[in-house]
Simulated assay, not measured.
Amino acid sequence: MARAFGLADVRSVAVAKTGSGLVKTVKATSVKGKTASLTGDQLRTKLTLRSASFSVA
């Protein structure tokens, strides 16, 4: 996951979804507080996911 965001590590992830439940944006925060954001489509492509309806645990 960290590589997808271009971060050294990921401490937390915040997901914003559309009204229909698809992932709109994902914001990752590193241990040092650096943040990076991707759209749902960008993250889905980087992680080779089949659907834009996914959750991050």
Rank of each mutant, 00 (worst) to 15 (best):
V10M: 06
L47M: 01
R44E: 00
L49K: 08
A14D: 13
L22E: 15
V23I: 02
T39C: 04
A36D: 02
V23W: 09
S37R: 14
R50M: 03
T45Q: 12
R3F: 14
R3K: 14
D9V: 15
L22R: 15
D41K: 14
D41N: 15
G40N: 03
S30L: 12
L22A: 14
L38A: 14
A2E: 03
S20G: 06
S37F: 07
A36Q: 04
Q42C: 02
T18L: 15
A28N: 13
T39L: 07
K27Y: 04
G6M: 02
V13P: 10
A14L: 14
R3Q: 11
Q42H: 08
K32F: 10
S30G: 04
V56Y: 15
M1R: 03
A16M: 11
A16L: 13
G19K: 12
S30F: 03
T48Q: 10
L7F: 01
T35Q: 06
K32M: 12
D9G: 09
S55G: 04
A4H: 08
M1A: 11
G21V: 06
V13W: 10
K27G: 01
L38R: 07
A14G: 08
G21L: 07
S37Q: 15
D9S: 12
K32A: 08
L38Y: 11
A57S: 13
L43M: 08
T45M: 15
K27C: 01
A52F: 01
G33A: 02
T48C: 10
S12T: 09
G19T: 11
V56F: 13
S53A: 06
T29Q: 09
A57I: 13
S12H: 02
G40V: 05
V26Q: 00
K27I: 13
L43Y: 03
F5I: 08
T18I: 12
L7H: 01
S55I: 10
S51L: 08
G33R: 13
V31Y: 10
L43T: 06
A4R: 09
A36I: 04
L47I: 00
G21Q: 03
S12C: 06
L43V: 07
R50D: 15
A28T: 04
G19D: 09
T39W: 02
L38V: 00
S55R: 15
T39G: 13
A16S: 12
T45D: 13
L47C: 01
K24G: 10
R44T: 04
S55F: 11
V31D: 14
R50I: 09
T48G: 06
L43G: 12
S37N: 13
K17C: 03
L49T: 01
S51E: 10
T25R: 02
Q42T: 05
V23A: 11
L43D: 07
F5A: 05
A14V: 05
L22G: 10
F5P: 01
S53G: 13
G33S: 09
